[in-house]
Write a protein that binds this DNA or RNA. Sequence first.
DNA 1: AAAGGCACCAACCGCACGTGC
DNA 2: TGCACGTGCGGTTGGTGCCTT
Length: 274
Amino acid sequence: MGRSPCCEKEHTNKGAWTQEEDDRLINYIKAHGEGCWRSLPKAAGLLRCGKSCRLRWINYLRPDLKRGNFTDEEDELIINLHSLLGNKWSLIAARLPGRTDNEIKNYWNTHIKRKLHNRGIDPQTHKPLNSTTATASTATITTTSSNSNNKSSSNTKTTTKFQPESQNSLTRVIQVPEIVNGTSTSGEESNSSTSGITTEEVYPVELNLDLSLGLPVQPAQQQEVVNFQVSGNQNQGDCFCHNLGSQGKQICRCGGSMAASITTKYNLYRFYMP
DNA sequence: AAAGGCACCAACCGCACGTGC
DNA sequence: TGCACGTGCGGTTGGTGCCTT
């Protein structure tokens, strides 16, 4: 016997929500809180499927949602998190306050994919599109983004170098973001030894460790990496997955050995290998 | 001005996972 | 241990508005 349907489809509305339905849903959740989505429609007097109510609330009606365009910092953060997590939109959304997984997924498919293609990067693998043939040279991708909320304060430049694959693993030179005060940094895209806090390490796993971009902090609070280690340290503690909000079934494999750690002024990030 | 194409995004659908019995 | 249920996630679809011809 199969599972029962989540609702009686013949008695439910579909399609766009009306203002009245929105009001009913908002009022009910204000009065009773979230949860029990299956019974919510009936209790709230809505001819909707419980799943539909949940989606409408989470993606559109929640009061803490941030509306409006994505900032450059959010763009870069999404790209970095996607390179680390793949299509784990809920995990990525957990790192972007006020944004929903659905919103990020749509934004990825409509904007960022194209953006990465224009940069010559494969949006799925985050490797250069011609990586299979470019084995002798190092590709450098530099992005400069300005904080639209603080137009006059600072720019954040991120440089990622892709080096030719070694025998069994991809080695990538990591640089933490440089805080470039004031003027544009154009013209120094390939110069990796400019001023700012720069840490370079090579590690044998395909991780993008740029974590400070786009975090909801003011420029003056940009996180400086004060310690970066690649080790087999087995210290227990919150792994990166947990820092990202991973719970339960999700990708966290904390049982593995720690591959690297980054200490910032505000957080300790640990990376575990499966 | 009209038609077709395209981009965007809200919403739907099916599946997987966690939990309680 | 297995089943049913509730919930969450990711992929996909369809409606709408804008742009181009």
